[in-house]
Nucleic acid binder design. Sequence first.
DNA 1: TATTCCGGTTACTTTTTGGTTACTACAGTA
DNA 2: TACTGTAGTAACCAAAAAGTAACCGGAATA
Lengths: 120, 120
Amino acid sequence: MKQYNCEIEAALEVIGGKWKAILLYHLTKGPKRTSELKRLVPGITQKMLTQQLRELEKDSVILRKVHSQIPPKVEYSLTEYGRTLEPVLNSLCHWGKRHIQYVYADEEVMVVNKEVEKTT
Amino acid sequence: MKQYNCEIEAALEVIGGKWKAILLYHLTKGPKRTSELKRLVPGITQKMLTQQLRELEKDSVILRKVHSQIPPKVEYSLTEYGRTLEPVLNSLCHWGKRHIQYVYADEEVMVVNKEVEKTT
DNA sequence: TATTCCGGTTACTTTTTGGTTACTACAGTA
DNA sequence: TACTGTAGTAACCAAAAAGTAACCGGAATA
């Protein structure tokens, strides 16, 4: 019998990984190729990227679509179930924005907005 | 110059620790003594509890109040700023609840509700 | 022929995280 | 006198997480 001490534990099992919330957040803006995600999340290594995406896939919140091409093309997107996470991700993002202002009011802080060139 | 690639990163710096969201969530229900938190989060060790609480304190989201008594009594509570996290914590909790139903629909799953006896 | 493209895997190393145990302070109580 | 209860610290060690670097395929291109 599985047992939680609070519901948040269950949520963290899915989005608690080091990069998961960030990856999911980017995917709320639309499907992304592996290379796009790497660019959007510069700190992540290929290994961690694949690993985290695999786990999210197992948890049914994202879909991995392989296009049979050479060179390969793989696209990740939120599943319908994954889209139920949007309120969580948005409130995280909203609070993050507020927090940056709260903490770094006088310092120079940047949130980098990477232009996303669509490749087909 | 500090730099984030998305706002969520900033939020995760504060609540991304292994136990932080859970601890904060319990504190949304009111101030708690160290021993109460230990009971509410059975998996945590004294060391991790102290460590995570110290970090939350540094980030100004919780307050540590020491009552000069023997034996010691320490109470933790959300600061006013910490209370701005409530929407985040609530949406996490809400999604967690939904996720438990989604995944464990047929299995036996429990969310343990510890009775909190107030000690003064 | 050699190199690039993309997404990924693997083996190995380093770093980070977390667990365990022992120890502290001090008043009250048995 | 010895022991309890509370909250915490410190030293030490084990385990888990994450970084690094090399390697793969197979078509297209230089």
